[in-house]
Write a protein that binds this DNA or RNA. Structure first.
Lengths: 380, 380
DNA sequence: CGCTTGAGTGAGAACGTTCTCAATCGCTGA
DNA sequence: TCAGCGATTGAGAACGTTCTCACTCAAGCG
């Protein structure tokens, strides 16, 4: 009898000394059925007799079989993977939002591929390319800049849905999830105004790119400032002032970087102004921390000398002295909702883009109080 | 002439209405070469004439071709993916360490698949299974418990190298990266002892499982307490006390949970003891925050009434009042080193497991000071 | 009894790459 | 002119699944 050679499933070591896991073909042979039947038993599709199923499962157990998702994805067209692009996972905002995305994803059987973009446009583009090649089923992106619209739209056109997190890119065919930044900042500013403050500084954290645009008299047109939240929040700040008949003073609007030290330096500069602010609105929790640090260095007390309101309810916001008043975002829920919208779309729901605005909450603690009439007001 | 049918590459829509990206076959046809040549031109392997290469690249550009990594991985046996298993990405320690892993990975062309295990053994096992099926090239794991040794070893046996982060699992065939927890805790305790403190509480953050084992007289045998860092640190604390001739008091060792509120409650309880501690060593930054919060509620001052030393140099540690003295770990570097070790191994270096212990640094700030002799010492 | 039905099965295609191998091309040197 | 050689090329296998399709078999029905 001539042995016809068969196809003899490869035992070749691929790459390094990696031990080859048994394929479905080996399991099928061990169980005495065809690969088709083995596939059905293991994959839980089609119809298999109880007897076959048992034989296959037993063989799989014996051989330590582990399905190969790659091969499966090739066929099904689904990788069960979501890409998440954020500027920096170390930022508590994004790590908490990521947690929301990941929880929703895992709950429904999806995995999460994470990329930090570092607010770098070229890194973001590169990542978009890589994740497209990986055939992720969808993307949650906190885009660096509206300038990336074409790259993002390209991904969408290639059939990979995108949900924008925290930031918006006008004209992009994608769902968005975030808060109403303009209204939130306006509300925070109004609260400071209601406490009698008339000289309120805005710490945006923005960088050189933003600075000239924030320097325009009266903050005109800031709402059209790109993907970042800074523009919308600055607009809310301006709106509140204008409604109260106060002309925004450009020198009170700072854009000197997002790090704590940047905020401390900015604070020092602001308080050295001839007509210094009596209150500060910081657009991020790290910035608020920098303000507190600077105040301490300057020997000023918060809120007695300077009132402070921050954004984002950090772990420590309640525990420090003074407990910090903040605009709290539902950060986890932001991420979770982004995950939900994305998976809905992955599951084939073809609908027009939706834009979710989740409610913010102002948490009043002790870092902001009524303005004191300077110097002369001290009682005898 | 008979048209022999050819294999006509499928135009079938797979899954939902996903637009199908052009395959290498389509590009090859467009460029007038074989798929093999197109593959060589696009993949940068083998040899291709300048003319063919140009034709292929132009065709790819025209059609918006994007390679399919899945197919590539099937062949090459490499997914260029690292799995990262951490208890909770929201924990600043892990998000910073992850950043380290991710930076190293991206720099070398690897992507990162992230899973939160929530300190849940069954979740961890499930994730291990899923990531095995995804054929990740390697895993960075901060294991929940030594009890998972077999599952972890199984993954390693299947050919997927593992690097343990922050925690150790005795007998596991894996590299580890962490600090010398015992020495670090001993050093911190010695500093408090040097300030004259004799009644020092230890806030471990551990839970019910740990409590009985921490309650043993003299903290005997705590060093064998599982994967977590708690055991080693408690041992260091004990060592320092014993060397000074002080018998550890079990009631000063708390294991009431890792949340800030848990720490606050524990602090309140500790300070209500008949012979309350004059100093507290908190094994994590969130716990330290809870201590501060509790002290404030109790109307006690830090460090005047109670000294405090924490672990991990959080963002806010320097900015709060009082600035917190801490044992700082090189967290980012821990993650980066884990990534490097893992990728070395992925690249085929077969060596014995290495155990990296990175140096810690005690940062002295203002939250710990010399003990005051109680009550009677007030000068006239 | 013959026909329909449906569950169960296996052969082989398909997914989109890279790899193997043999064939061809264009030169070079004798 | 022709053998020899390396660069270039293409056909087709391989990776490990799922999907398609045709087939078998037993049960149910007239």
């Amino acid at each position: 009898m001539v042995w016809t050679g068969s196809s003899s499933p490869g035992v070749r070591m691929s790459g390094s000394a990696r031990r080859s896991m048994p394929s479905i073909e080996v399991v099928a042979k061990e169980a005495g059925v065809s690969t088709a039947t083995a596939g059905r038993a293991l994959g839980g599709y089609g119809s298999v007799s109880g007897k076959s199923r048992e034989a296959v499962l037993a063989a799989a157990e014996r051989l330590g079989y582990r399905a190969n998702s790659l091969a499966r994805s090739m066929i099904t067209g689904l990788t069960h993977t979501l890409g998440v692009l954020v500027p920096d996972i170390e930022n508590p905002f994004f790590s908490r939002a990521l947690r929301g995305v990941a929880d929703v994803a895992h709950e429904r059987g999806w995995e999460v591929l994470l990329v930090n973009t570092d607010e770098d446009l070229s890194l973001e583009r590169k990542a978009l390319g890589v994740l497209t090649e990986r055939r992720v089923d969808g993307l949650v992106v906190a885009p660096t800049d509206t300038a990336d619209r074409d790259a993002l739209q390209g991904v969408i056109d290639a059939g990979i849905p995108i949900v924008l997190l925290d930031r918006r890119v006008p004209g992009l065919d994608a769902d968005t999830v975030g808060i109403d930044n303009r209204a939130a900042a306006k509300d925070a500013t109004e609260r400071l105004l209601a406490l009698g403050h008339r000289s309120i500084a805005l710490l945006t954290g923005g960088d050189e790119k933003l600075r000239p645009r924030l320097a325009r008299p009266g903050l005109r047109g800031v709402e059209r400032l790109g993907a970042t939240t800074v523009g919308a929040r600055a607009a809310g700040y301006r709106d509140a002032l204008l409604e109260k008949g106060i002309e925004p003073r450009p020198e009170l609007v700072s854009a000197e970087g997002f790090r704590r030290e940047d905020a401390a330096a900015a604070t020092t500069r602001l308080l050295a102004l001839p007509d210094p602010p009596t209150a500060i609105l910081a657009l991020d929790s790290l910035l608020a921390l920098g303000v507190l640090q600077a105040l301490k260095r300057l020997g000023l007390r918060c809120p007695a000398d300077v009132s402070l309101v921050g954004f984002d309810d950090a772990d420590w916001a309640e525990a420090i002295s003074p407990p910090l008043s903040v605009v709290a975002q539902p950060v986890y829920e932001l991420g979770a909702e982004a995950g939900r919208l994305l998976l809905d779309r992955v599951h084939g729901t073809d609908r027009r883009p939706v834009h979710r605005r989740l409610p913010t909450r102002f948490i009043e603690r002790d870092s902001a109080e009524s303005v004191r009439t300077p110097a002369t007001s001290t009682p005898p």
